[in-house]
Every structure is written in C-alpha cells, then in structure tokens.
Nucleic acid binder design. Structure first.
Lengths: 165, 165
DNA sequence: GACCCGGTACTCGGATATAATATGTCCGAGTCTGTACGG
DNA sequence: CCGTACAGACTCGGACATATTATATCCGAGTACCGGGTC
C-alpha cells in the first residue's frame, strides 16, 4: 500500500498557495516549475482539489489556483481525501460469507448482523489515521516552515511568487 | 490508496489457524476452499507470513501452515506488515529540494537538517495507524467471534477442520 | 480623452497513451506417509 | 510380528502471464487581458 505521488505534490502546492497574496492566482505551470514535477500530471491533482472545494480556479491570463479557504481551515485530511478519495484503505469483501462453513439462513442473519470483526479493526485503524491528518492544517505547516527556514530563503520564495502573479 | 486483497485473506486465514489443534497443520488448499479464494494466489500471502515468522510451514502429506506463536502474540500489525511490507504509506521524494527556489549551500544545510514538515505529519499519521493495528491480536478477534457467533456454527467449523487435519 | 469591441494568448478540464503494480496461474524441488518386503 | 527401504502423493516456494491502477501526456473549451477603433 502506498499513497499516490500526487498527495505529496498536492500538499506542497497547497503550502505554497497559502503564501499567495490574497485574491491572486498561481497557475499550474508555475506550481509545477517550483517543485520540478510534470505540469500536466500535477494538474490532475489540482483538479481533485478544485472539485473538493479546497482550491478555486480561474481561467485566462493571470488565472490559476488559489486556496478557497483560510490555510487554518484546510487540514491535511482534506487534501489527502481530495486526491486519494474518501474510501477506507481497507475494503471488506465479506469473505466470511464464502466457503462451506459459512452460516446459512437464521444463523447467517445472526452472525452477519454486525460488520466483520476483522474489518472493524482495520476500519478503526483507518479512522485514527484520518483523525491524525485532520488535526494538522496548512497554517501549522507554514508556521513550522517559518520557524526552521532562514528569513532570506523565505523572502526569496515570496519574491519568486511576486514575479509571476 | 488501497490495501491488497491479500491482507484481508491473510487476516482471516490467521484467525482460522488460531482455531487449529496444537501441533497440526492446515494446507493452503483447505484455507482457500474455506474462504473461496484462489488457492495459488493465497499461497503468496501465506509465503509472506511464513517469511516474517507469523506462521510455520510443513511439507508433505498432513503438511500446511500453523501459527508460529500464540494467537495472543500475533497482532494485526504483524500480519499486515508481512503482506504489505513495513514501509510507510507515505514516501517523501524531497520535492522541497527541487525547483528554482530551493536553498543551496549553507542555507540548504540549515533548511534540510530536519525531515520535510509535510512528511513528518504524514509519517505521524502512519504511526498512529500502525499503533492501532498493534493493539489488537488474533486472540481478541477470536474472542469477539466467539461472543457473536452461535455455538453450533463454531462447532460446525471445528468439525470441518478436524475432517482435514 | 474615455469607452467599447474583438483578437489573442493564456488558463483549466477532461480524454488519451504508457509504465508499474496487483492479481491470478503454473510448474518444479522437497518431504512425509503409507505400503511392501525382508528378517 | 517388527523394522526398513522405497514408491507415491502431497506440500510449499518461486517463476511466469494477465488485469487493473498509477503515471505521464495531449488537445479542446472557455475566459481574462490588451490593443485598436469609435464616440
């Protein structure tokens, strides 16, 4: 099991978008150049973010993407689910109902009233995973970055952005 | 992101193996028939379990697989990692080092001393996921099963096993 | 000089190929069991 | 009757195809800007 590459890209892109001056857009082309990733494929991740209302898009010159909400209102979970989907990582195919020993009739009704015990455990793990991701927002990671990066590096990036919007 | 089908199969197989009389083996063929899954492919999952020391194998007639440890000593995490691998679900490709704004020289050394902030969050989510899986053992799920399944259904399964070992 | 209009260039969004991985299948090496044989 | 050697059948383990998914790319629809023309 491995998350898509797009998840990493999307998170980093959102972090960058969080640094945009209000009201401005940054196009896919620049987001791709900034991270040195294929532009056309990155756009698919951004489409997912757009469809889930994480970012807003604008067409034409000086168009592009911007965050649709405040960075403190966008959690990691929002971004991950926009790219990976909201489905649980574990899918129960109910194999307990297969095979020669599977209960039939009245017994089946009793045994299968509750979800499969194996699936319950796996789903609970999935929930705590998502809960952890929901605890962290883009604002948090921006803050962490601001604390560990020298000011001149940050200024450099801001300037790079301003040259393009 | 989605876990392999084999994870579900492996967990259910381990649950069944936990019900084996001590010292006996159950072959892949019967495990596959019990769950109605392709025998040859299931064997790949069991190979993984064997390599990680979750189960022990024996060749020849009356051979097969059995748990290598007590059911209370085998966690869900053990089984999942044996099938899916121990690598984190999130792989950091360090895209922060790419692109025109990436710091160079002394700045780079300062900025990249710690792991990427995005990756740290994703990894922490991965850790809580694994921690949850490590809390539950095969013995727990067996107990849950025993509480929710009527005795005759369980007896039925035990008998089915005894016919084959 | 200010306003309006149209062309142009730029944007996103989805449809289309290719690579990697998960899924499913097959066959060979090894070993335990059961039997036949000899003592 | 008991021990031993052997043949057979059954097991796992890894090598080999196929289906699905992730990765990468391309092109078309739509829109904001910019320049020229008009009032």
């Amino acid at each position: 099991m491995q998350l898509r590459n797009q998840v990493e890209w999307a998170l980093h892109c959102c972090t960058l978008l969080a640094a945009l001056p209000p009201g401005r857009y940054l196009p896919t082309k620049d987001l791709a150049e900034f991270h040195d990733v294929p532009k056309e494929y990155l756009s698919k991740a951004l489409q997912g973010l757009s469809q889930d209302g994480i970012v807003e898009s604008a067409l034409g010159p000086s168009g592009g993407y911007r965050l649709a909400r405040s960075p403190s209102d966008v959690t990691f979970l929002d971004v991950v689910e926009a790219v990976e989907g909201k489905a649980s990582s574990f899918v129960c195919t109910e194999i307990r109902r297969n095979g020669p020993c599977s209960p039939k009739g009245a017994d089946a009704k009793k045994c299968f009233a509750k979800p499969c015990g194996v699936a319950q455990v796996m789903w609970s793990a999935d929930r705590v995973w998502r809960a952890r991701l929901a605890e962290v927002t883009l604002a948090d990671v921006t803050q962490t970055l601001a604390e560990s990066f020298p000011q001149n590096v940050i200024d450099n990036t801001i300037e790079w952005i301003n040259e393009r919007i």
